[in-house]
Design a protein around this nucleic acid. Structure first.
Lengths: 338, 338
DNA sequence: TTTAGCACTTTGGACGTTCGAGTGCTAATT
DNA sequence: AATTAGCACTCGAACGTCCAAAGTGCTAAA
């Protein structure tokens, strides 16, 4: 559909615009890049590219700017993902290989590292536990009316919460209740946990049905809570487009919309998903580009948000490196083998 | 030092400026407020107030704007803290009286409510546990090499963390270690916990010294971690001063400086602390005003950050109401009596 | 097919003018 | 002695004009 020269021109425009945030003109293009043709020829090509929808013009006498479609083509087929600088590799490696005990911590370190390297804003959620299998449930009586509920998954994610008891319970009773829960829950997929697993419990414990139900409800609640971490929100102000009040304001609204962020971080597969500007499903994101991916081994999901004029190649190279390093580290030493 | 008329004028200027964010002129003042003198008189007074340092002038032909000192005098002696609107009272009450199990949750709800009512940005930390007394320490073996450490304070704050064990331990050993920790730690002020409490443990457990030390280190670590919550960061963009790029950028930098926020939230006493503009100790805050206070009953600390042109009276009335409601609720029903 | 040349468009900065709001000062008034 | 009317003055915001810079599209020549 696009001949080679058009591809080359489109690629160059996108890259120049990403680097300089100024609309790109024909003269600038021939002067700075080795295209082997005159500005006039470039102009003809650019006019066609614009007609085909790959470029936009802010106004008649300005240069061209990539359209969403232009970015899309660039990302899908023109972009070259180069490798990272040595110091970036060292930094990323060291961020990931910190001594970490709880799996949900890992993405947080990755998130911070990515925001530092890319200058964009990064958010992350921990492991998606609803897809996980329960390895153990522990009830711990903290004092006579506080009960700690701990759920451990096969992947060693740990979730815990505290509830207040209406009536005091002794250790023996707690242990009995715990045993019931173990029998009913261990080995189950968390997403399948429902109150009616309690249907067939013996008579001896039916007196504690109330407490059992409330514990089960808490378990269903905590596995759904998934804190998001946020890094580099001030990075955005390094990019010139955020001097525009409206864009800055919209960005703040995105930051505050935690629920929305959780929603976009529900990444299904192992791909790297790129949503450019108005490709975004949620209108709040339409001024931005969003790149999301799952960390391997179900460590969590990460989202990177930046202007549509985002350095896609850079971000992708960072992501690919991270996926690689996590794969080799955590798969190799069996850290997550349960 | 200031005669009554000057006080009245200063107060009126501050309040008008807070309400309208426009420099206040003499004509505007007499037209909108019942001062009983002519603009000329006001001008003379304003000139003197400026000379005394209570007012600033953006430029020769602009009205006056309060200086830091002007706000200070206003806050200290001129301001009238009015009572809240009915709907605000209902909303606050309902936010605080939600069913809440873990004490550290309470401030988070309060924080969100305050940011909604005031249109400023609010951050909060949970109870300051270092000043608390340990009620219990529990070790729970999650699986053969994961150990959950739980610390409960007298005030019923719960902190927990997971560590990975180097060598596998059985339940009996864990129980022995737990017993040692109980003996050594229960009843202690958290701030006094040190590794050398382990000095005089019996021989039988000295084989487990390594694990004891690492547990103790974890305990000292977790009691120091204090997550901050943040609400209404996008509220700031409702205030006209934040259309200035520099102010917006500085504000983002404040948001990202979590360590700094923790620092300013170390509130010592039961007062409400107000730091206006360059009164702030940390330069990052010098463009803003900061109001901090401790929630009663050691529930946590809350900080409200806004422009120097902040509605101090409104914020203070909210804070006072909150302190009152927490006092009456949690003191009365003995929720925190442990 | 490519390019040189040129007329045309638009933005943005520099500059000047005007207008409104506000000031400080002086002299008159209370 | 305190207040106020009056007035000259100052400054910024808004507006228009002008011009340069950058870029375009089109035409005609190479």
């Amino acid at each position: 559909m696009l001949n080679d020269r058009k591809k080359k021109i489109l690629q160059t425009i996108v890259e120049d615009y990403i680097a300089n945030s100024q609309p790109v003109g024909s003269k600038r293009l021939v002067e700075n890049y080795d295209l082997g043709v005159s500005p006039a020829t470039i102009r003809n090509e650019m006019a066609e590219l614009e007609e085909m929808g790959y470029l936009d013009k802010p106004h008649t006498s300005a240069g061209r700017v990539p359209s969403t479609l232009g970015y899309r083509v660039y990302v899908d087929s023109l972009m070259k993902v180069d490798s990272l600088k040595d110091e970036e590799i060292v930094y990323l490696k060291q961020s990931i290989e910190k001594e970490i005990v709880e799996v949900s911590e890992i993405v947080k370190h990755v998130s911070k590292a990515v925001s530092n390297i890319t200058d964009y804003t990064v958010f992350a959620t921990g492991p998606n536990v609803t897809d996980a299998v329960i390895q153990d449930v522990k009830l711990v009586l903290l004092n006579k009316n506080m009960l700690l509920i701990v759920v451990v998954t096969k992947e060693e994610a740990v979730k815990e919460t505290v509830i207040h008891l209406e009536k005091d319970l002794d250790e023996d009773t707690i242990e009995k209740i715990n045993e019931i829960l173990r029998i009913k829950l261990v080995g189950e997929y968390i997403k399948n946990v429902q109150v009616n697993v309690l249907k067939h419990i013996g008579n001896e414990l039916s007196a504690y049905m109330d407490i059992l139900i409330s514990i089960l409800n808490e378990i269903m609640k905590i596995i759904k809570t998934n804190d998001i971490s946020l890094d580099g929100s001030n990075n955005m102000f390094k990019h010139p487009e955020f001097q525009k009040y409206n864009l800055a304001k919209n960005f703040m609204d995105v930051l505050e919309a935690k629920q929305l962020i959780k929603e976009v971080l529900k990444v299904e597969d192992d791909d790297i998903n790129i949503y450019i500007g108005d490709e975004n499903q949620y209108s709040e994101f339409k001024d931005f580009s969003l790149i999301t991916f799952n960390c391997p081994e179900n460590l969590g999901a990460i989202g990177i948000i930046g202007p549509t004029r985002m350095d896609y190649a850079k971000v992708l190279s960072v992501i690919k490196y991270i996926k690689g390093i996590i794969n080799s580290k955590y798969r190799k030493d069996g850290y997550l083998d349960g």
